[in-house]
């Protein structure tokens, strides 16, 4: 059984919802990535989405784009990110890590090599924003062959036919993009999410995580009530951006603890 499935099973037993923070590897500098991963776990993260920096993050808003730019100033590439996961795994065997980013760095490494390295270093899932089911069949076959879960996005604009298609290919969990727009935008519509989730559940047996636009504890709680997991990205990246290298680990830990408390009320 995959680490992601084990995690969700355990949460379900305890009637809890997953808290899934995101940040970009290498931001603000590569030496802080592993300490940040551990801090997130201590603060109550169930799964961590670790962003792979990319030069042209089309689906992201300015906050996460700047995070990529900061990481790329330190030349943090995909193989560095994999090394960081390996280092994290030396002292954490439980918390699932999902790499999230764009397809091109993986294309450059090659899907077979990438999938093998994921298995070796302890990556659990991979989400490539710009690889919809139409284009990812062959690529993701390499992932599943190595026991890595391909995580898919669904959106407010996804039709029944598309949801059904994703249901066939997805593993681990499905990430529902809660708004029309880029990451970090501010116009989340709770009613729309409440309406959409049952449509997804008709086809999707996997847990459903919701993200994009969750900026505070109150929203995290409201969203947690509607789904199986809450993804918080831009708000955490913003905290990193506003911190110094000295206090960033503590500040991010404090923020995630607040989110944890909120999600646990759901």
């Amino acid at each position: 059984m995959s680490r992601i499935q084990t995690t969700f099973d355990k949460l379900k037993q305890h009637k809890r919802k997953a808290l899934i923070p995101f940040f970009t590897a290498g931001d603000p500098n590569p030496a802080l990535t592993v300490p940040l991963l551990h801090a997130l776990v201590e603060a109550g993260a169930d799964i961590i989405e670790l962003g792979v920096p990319f030069s042209d993050p089309m689906a992201d808003g300015p906050t996460i784009q700047r995070a990529s730019e900061r990481a790329l100033r330190h030349h943090v590439g995909l193989h560095h990110v994999l090394d960081m996961v390996a280092e994290f795994r030396r002292s954490n065997a439980e918390t699932p890590i999902v790499l999230m980013g764009y397809g091109n760095p993986i294309e450059a490494m090659g899907w077979e090599k990438f999938s093998r390295r994921c298995a070796e270093t302890g990556v659990d899932g991979v989400l490539t924003v710009d690889f919809p089911p139409e284009e990812s069949h062959e690529a993701f076959a390499h992932l599943t062959m190595h026991g890595i879960d391909p995580i898919f996005l669904l959106a407010p604009t996804s039709t029944d036919a598309r949801v059904a298609r994703v249901a066939k290919q997805a593993r681990g969990y499905v990430y529902y993009v809660s708004l029309k727009g880029v990451t970090g935008a501010g116009h989340l519509d709770l009613d729309a999410i409440a309406q959409k989730i049952p449509q997804l559940r008709k086809y999707i047996q996997l847990p459903v995580g919701v993200g994009f636009g969750i900026r505070d504890a109150a929203t995290a709680l409201a969203v947690a009530k509607l789904c199986d997991g809450v993804v918080v990205g831009s708000r955490i990246v913003q905290e990193i951006e506003n911190s110094t290298e000295q206090n960033v680990v503590a500040n991010v830990g404090k923020l995630v603890r607040e989110l944890r408390l909120a999600v646990d009320q759901a």
Binding site: A155, T157, R162, V166
Partner: peptide, 20 residues
């Protein structure tokens, strides 16, 4: 019919754009 020129082309975008 799927927008490919041999191995090139295709539709590599986020799910949010697929409907459009």
């Amino acid at each position: 019919s799927t927008g490919h020129f041999g191995p090139y082309g295709g539709i590599y975008v986020a799910e949010t754009l697929m409907g459009a």
